[in-house]
């Protein structure tokens, strides 16, 4: 498989990049590390005329601490994120999640910005052009049928970015720059919940992600990321669980965020189970019952090769593991 014909542009400034995007309209794609997009191009999932590379914009490589937050440029590679001492100490779960992505070869090119803007995936969509030509066009490929649910309802491709649930658990905000100006929004708002156009950029907004801003958590907050996939260095997560937990001095749950990837059209926030946990004394029994309850909140579909029931079972185990680890080192009962 070769790449389609493209013209490659690599602007030196954000404004220059935005002007190029405005000029090219819908016939361009922005490329960060390219580890996902290059495969999509080879499979003709996307056939842009222009590719706009962001590697020459210097501020997109920053990692800095300012005003109680860590500010990251989108072009930091996952290798840089996982090996940064600042991130290791202040945002350990982010460092851990970055280390869990793919292989070291991929991590030295894949970027945090690319992960935040990652497209959704499905076993009926992420295939070669030839493979796809044997079936009716699905929603994501521009048709009007979903091979997963066998219905003409909507696309169900899964959101699979590893870093995003962790970033949302940390309360991250992002900066989007357009020709009209910049706007800051919480990362959660960036996702549309529509598998066809999963985020504002893929939904057609002519903006670039210019910064990821993560408030440094207070000392007592513990965060972890747990992930399951079959082939460690190859597969996207079947399920990824991010937990940030705040226990008070009496070992009661003051605040908790549980976010999942791989099991919906967008990052999934566990809400009912959260209510069960707030104010409760943290112990093994509570963790087990809540993990099982939390896994009932998700609606996994057969977007990969395993059954939804299997995914739910794995999700329950991973949520339990994450809760235990988050509470374990802080909580007194472990």
């Amino acid at each position: 498989m070769h790449l389609p014909d493209i013209v490659y542009l690599s602007p030196n400034k954000t404004t220059e990049a935005l002007e190029v995007i405005e000029d090219c309209g819908n016939s361009c794609s922005v490329i960060a590390g390219g580890t996902d997009l290059m495969v999509a191009l080879k499979q003709r999932l996307q056939t842009p005329k222009y590719l706009i590379g962001l590697e020459n914009i210097p501020e997109f490589k920053k990692i800095e601490e300012k005003d109680e937050s860590i500010r990251l440029g989108p072009m930091n590679t996952l290798d840089e994120i996982s090996s940064s001492d600042l991130i290791k100490t202040k945002l350990p779960a982010l460092s851990q999640a970055a280390r869990e992505v793919g292989s070291p070869l991929l991590r030295s090119q894949a970027t945090i910005g690319g992960n935040v803007c990652l497209n959704t995936r499905c076993r009926f969509y992420n295939q070669s052009q030839f493979w796809r030509s044997t079936r009716e066009k699905c929603y994501k490929a521009g048709g009007s049928y979903c091979h997963v649910t066998k219905q003409k309802e909507k696309c169900n491709a899964a959101f699979v970015a590893d870093l995003v649930p962790v970033l949302i658990a940390y309360g991250a905000n992002i900066k989007l720059a357009g020709l009209a100006g910049e706007k800051m929004l919480s990362l959660k708002e960036f996702y549309t919940g529509d598998s066809c156009f999963p985020n504002q950029i893929l939904n057609g907004d002519r903006v670039i992600l210019t910064e990821i801003d993560i408030p440094i958590p207070k000392n007592n907050i513990r965060s972890v990321y747990k992930k399951f996939r079959f082939r460690r260095s190859i597969d996207f997560p079947l399920v990824g669980v991010a937990v940030s937990l705040d226990l008070d001095e009496n070992n009661r749950c003051r605040d908790i965020n549980i976010l999942l990837t791989g099991v919906g059209s967008a990052p999934v926030e566990i809400k009912k189970a959260k209510k069960e946990l707030l104010g409760q004394r943290w112990d093994d029994e509570l963790v087990s019952s809540v993990a099982s309850l939390a896994s009932q909140e998700i609606r996994p579909l057969k977007t990969n090769l395993v059954s939804p029931r299997y995914t739910r079972e794995i999700a329950s185990l991973k949520i339990k593991e994450a809760l235990q680890e988050a509470g374990g080192k802080n909580g007194k009962n472990y």
């Binding site: 490659y8 690599s10 490329i31 390219g34 290059m38 590379g53 590697e55 090119q109």
Partner: peptide
């Protein structure tokens, strides 16, 4: 790195 995922121009 994987050279199959790297554009030569980059």
């Amino acid at each position: 790195i994987n050279s199959c995922l790297t554009l030569a121009v980059r």
